[in-house]
């Protein structure tokens, strides 16, 4: 049972994580700072709640300009958005 559930969870997870990881394959020396990302997002009217790193991407939790909750992933070198989830 546990095995089946783990396999199910892992297969679902792997598809999402692999996608983001491919787009954030940047050596650490080329990363821009979290503060730079925050400043860029806040210029777009976002209220940034927290920024973490996940699978080589920056992962930001924020309220966007429209007041929506967003969880978005950014390439740490280019600070381009690579993935975004809106939760309502």
């Amino acid at each position: 049972m546990k095995l089946i559930m783990s396999a199910f969870a892992l297969s679902l997870a792997a598809s999402g994580a692999a996608l983001a990881a491919d787009k954030c394959d940047v050596p650490k020396s080329e990363w821009q700072s979290i503060d730079t990302l925050k400043a860029q997002l806040e210029k777009q009217g976002w209220k940034v709640r927290s920024v973490k790193t996940e699978d080589g991407c920056y992962e930001a939790y924020a309220i966007d300009a429209a007041g929506k909750k967003v969880e978005a992933y950014f390439n740490p070198k280019t600070l381009e958005a690579v993935d975004k989830k809106s939760n309502d």
Binding site: V48, R49, S50, A60, Y61, A62, I63, K69, E71, N87
Partner: peptide, 10 residues
């Protein structure tokens, strides 16, 4: 963590 007020609050 799903509410507007506590979304992303570490």
């Amino acid at each position: 963590q799903t509410t507007d007020a506590y979304w992303g609050i570490e």
